[in-house]
């Protein structure tokens, strides 16, 4: 399968934080959920992909092209929403349209104003009068209105209420139905991703912990809930991490079927991305 985005051995060192050998691929037409707790390295990785930070080692290819050498061509086809608000507050959506019309070759004014209407955003109001949810919708409308082949969205739902979050996730789903687009979507709110992401890439403390198709992850991985005696019988090779709670052990396993065949433990729960994150980050080995 053709990859829209390839990140290989990306390393970046700060005084107090380091990205180590970040490697993952986003296949064409797919949505990748990029998950991890706050400060895990999601935004730094995205900034490296977009050339907002420069002094890193490793290779990043977008549409098969080097992201630093072919910067101009690549960015014509990328739509971006960053984690911070980024439009000058004194501008209006009409100003944003005029600006982007002069920046993107494929800017689609009609599409932009259609989105504004769909999102109930007033065209001539200054952005500073918009709520956080409205600003995000404006940013998303802008990211979508030049028919991008790749959307890079850093925490687009963070800080929003559940209704606005659901609306925004719906927008992404409908975009995928209409346009031939791939999405890299970072979030620490994993429930948003379970239904829409085809792939999950999980970053923790500057390292990629796993990068797999969501189905495979949610179908195969499981949580074994057992007593201490049962836990001690489990071979170290057969689990990934565990947490000892007040009453039981919660053990993260990679393959429910294989585990069931080997051990006689009754309770194996389905996993959610939240469970996965908690066990991976907090669990012992």
């Amino acid at each position: 399968m053709e990859n829209i985005l390839e990140v290989k051995n990306l390393c970046k060192k700060y005084n107090d934080f380091e990205l180590r050998n970040i490697t993952f691929n986003l296949p064409k037409g797919m949505i990748m959920g990029f998950i991890g707790e706050n400060g895990a390295g999601k935004t730094t990785t995205i900034k490296a992909i977009l050339d907002i930070i420069k002094s890193y080692s490793g290779e990043i290819k977008i549409f098969g092209l080097d992201n630093r050498k072919e910067d101009k061509i690549i960015k014509e086809d990328i739509g971006v929403v960053l984690d911070d608000m980024f439009f000058p507050e004194i501008l209006t959506p009409v100003d944003i349209n005029n600006t982007m019309k002069g920046i993107y070759k494929n800017w689609d004014t009609k599409m932009f104003f259609d989105y504004l209407k769909e999102f109930s955003l007033l065209q001539n109001k200054q952005i500073k009068t918009f709520s956080k949810g409205m600003r995000k919708k404006l940013e998303i409308a802008t990211a979508l209105s030049h028919h991008p082949k790749l959307l890079i969205l850093d925490e687009p739902t963070s800080g929003l209420d559940p209704v606005a979050r659901a609306e925004i996730i719906e927008i992404f789903q409908s975009v995928l139905e209409k346009e031939e687009c791939s999405i890299l979507l970072s979030s620490h709110i994993t429930t948003d991703l379970e239904h829409i992401a085809d792939y999950i890439t999980f970053i923790n403390n500057g390292e990629i912990v796993l990068s797999k198709p969501t189905n495979e992850l949610l179908d195969k991985y499981g949580i074994v809930k057992c007593t201490e005696k049962e836990f001690l019988d489990i071979n170290r090779k057969d689990y990934i991490k565990y947490i000892k709670t007040k009453y039981e052990y919660e053990v993260l396993i990679e393959n429910k079927q294989v585990f069931k065949a080997k051990y006689n433990i009754a309770v194996i729960d389905k996993i959610t991305l939240d469970d996965l994150m908690v066990l991976m980050i907090k669990g012992a080995e």
Partner: peptide, 8 residues
Amino acid sequence: AYSISLPN
């Protein structure tokens, strides 16, 4: 930061 994500 956002301006860098735009073409050129």
